[in-house]
Design a binder for these strands. Structure first.
Length: 485
RNA sequence: GCCGCGUUCGUCUAGGGGUUAGGACGCCGGCCUUUCACGCCGGUAACACGGGUUCAAAUCCCGUACGCGGUACCA
């Protein structure tokens, strides 16, 4: 058995989106679980949709997630080049060999004559090809002349009549299609570029790909590819078509539908929003696959050791942002505090907050378990860095009673003269004050929290005060006393 | 329209002839607690429908419905 070789073959028509990452992930997991190799191949045969920085984005997105590839345009490898635009001659040569063997033909039809064909609801296939303008309907000599004169043309696959094309998909099982339902597919476009169908078959063969793992949307074209392999006399690789990721409302997870649901669509957006790469990977892995146990939280390397294609389901799955949030919280919590610091820094900077490492470390330690996304630190816990400017009105009504100002002021006075600003002392001083004023501790705790953070929710009060430090704590307490009265 | 693929709690899913149909997210309730989270405990909720096959069907077969995908000189 030869070594497993998998390719991830995106086309650079835009930034890598979440569905593409899922495909890449499954490719990676399968390759690694089999001890095989994975190659990144850029399918840039559509010049009209080419996006300049897309390739770069794809590479960075994979890197961010830790999906390392073995061969790629920048890494090189034994089957270079890995950009299809750089392999044009190969495709042309193979297409022509197909014409020679009678499996393909030149076609000169204008776009308007094809449009007319389709208007009559007819396909370009065995039943119509003889009415069209191609090398099947003209003498060899005429064809040669037209070709030599540089007339625009394409090369089409001559799909055989009345055969059933069948293949065994590793995920879907047996799939078969009657060749009558397959068009004479364009193999080489009039600009000389191959279509996906040709390029992908030629490259998979030449790059010794053993398994094609790609999205469900390719199932209908796979019979065309099988036909191509047969025409070339090649053995097709194994096929595995992954179920699609759907929008929560059911449709295709398009840019528009995703935006409406608040779902980031490009991988770079997940990064920008403070999602953990491991969480995104974990979430994606479980969209259509499960290990058969009840474990759910996995890192990439752990996934690699338990992944198998047999356990990939065949039904499409809806994207669930809440579940992703849960995975993110799980992975965020497992992060080493120093790594968390790195995660959180960009968000502080974005908000113009300059914070020293030691202090940030204290804060992170304090709120670590309460973060779901890294950016929560600045959105939920800004009071760790700047004095509160507003106080939650509901909190005021509920917690800032008539004696609050005097109690808080008293507490501030006691803190102000404290020598060791540790949690035990802070708590002792507060309870002592409560006792001497004959009130419950909560009568002070709550207004103090409100004064210091502007809200009624948050980490343990004494730990919070300790982190804020004496100067800040006292300043905020006194400030609240004057503001709230 | 035609072709293909699919259908278990709201969502992700386990289970594939005999199960109280299991887990996770979400939601609800409780415990913990100075608050809110975390955590823990408990609850809610599903085999699309109709026919077969069988002693027995969520599970196998056939239809129907619904959903999704494809139907390009896009991938």
């Amino acid at each position: 058995m030869s070594t497993v070789r998998i390719r991830f073959a995106p086309s650079p028509t835009g930034y890598l989106h979440i569905g593409g990452l899922r495909t890449a992930l499954y490719c990676y997991l399968f390759a690694r679980s089999q001890g095989g190799n994975i190659v990144l191949r850029i399918e840039d045969t559509d010049r009209t949709r080419f996006v300049e920085d897309a390739e770069d984005d794809i590479v960075q997105a994979l890197e961010w997630c830790g999906l390392e590839v073995d061969e790629s345009p920048m890494l090189g490898g034994p089957y270079a080049p890995y950009r299809q635009s750089e392999r044009q001659d190969l495709y042309r040569k193979h297409a022509e060999s197909l014409v020679d063997s009678g499996h393909a033909y030149y076609a000169f039809d204008t776009s308007s004559s094809i449009a007319e064909l389709r208007k009559n609801n007819e396909a370009y296939n065995a039943s119509t090809r003889l009415q069209m303008d191609n090398s099947l309907t003209h003498s060899e000599e005429v064809v040669r002349m037209r070709l030599e004169s540089g007339e625009e043309h394409v090369i089409r696959l001559r799909v055989p009549e009345n055969v059933t094309v069948q293949f065994n998909d590793l995920i879907k099982g047996s799939v078969s299609v009657d060749s009558a339902n397959i068009d004479d597919q364009v193999l080489v476009k009039s600009d000389g570029m191959p279509t996906y169908h040709l390029a992908n078959v030629v490259d998979d063969q030449h790059m010794a790909i053993t398994h094609v793992i790609r999205g469900d949307e390719w199932i209908p074209s796979t019979p065309k590819h099988i036909l191509l392999y047969q025409a070339f006399g090649w053995q097709p690789p194994a096929m595995a078509h992954l179920p699609l990721i759907l929008s929560p409302t059911g449709g295709k997870l398009s840019k528009r539908s995703a935006q409406r649901q608040g779902i980031p669509i490009n991988v770079r957006d997940y990064r920008a929003k403070g999602f953990e790469p491991q969480a995104v990977i974990n979430f994606l892995a479980f969209l259509g696959w499960n290990p058969g146990t009840e474990d759910e939280v996995f890192e990439l390397e752990e996934l690699t050791s338990v992944f198998s294609l047999e356990r990939v389901g065949s039904a499409p799955a809806k994207f669930d942002l809440d579940k992703l949030g849960w995975f993110n919280a799980q992975h965020l919590r497992r992060l080493d505090i120093e790594v968390l610091l790195e995660r959180v820094r960009p968000f502080l900077e974005k908000h113009g907050m300059i914070v020293e490492d030691d202090y940030l470390r204290d804060v992170c330690f304090l709120v670590h378990d309460r973060l779901q996304q890294a950016q929560d630190l600045v959105t939920h816990f800004s009071y760790c860095f700047v004095d509160p400017v507003t106080f939650d009105p509901v909190g005021i009504r509920k917690r800032w009673k008539s004696d609050a100002a005097s109690l808080v002021d008293d507490y501030a006075a006691r803190l102000d003269v404290l020598r060791s600003f540790n949690e035990e002392t802070l708590e002792f001083k507060l309870r002592d004050l409560a006792a001497s004023r004959k009130v419950g501790a909560g009568r002070i705790i709550h207004p103090v929290r409100l004064a210091v953070s502007g809200t009624t929710a948050g980490p343990g009060l004494f730990a919070l005060l300790r982190v804020l430090g004496r100067r800040t704590s006292v300043r905020r307490l006194r400030n609240a006393v004057t503001r709230l009265g």
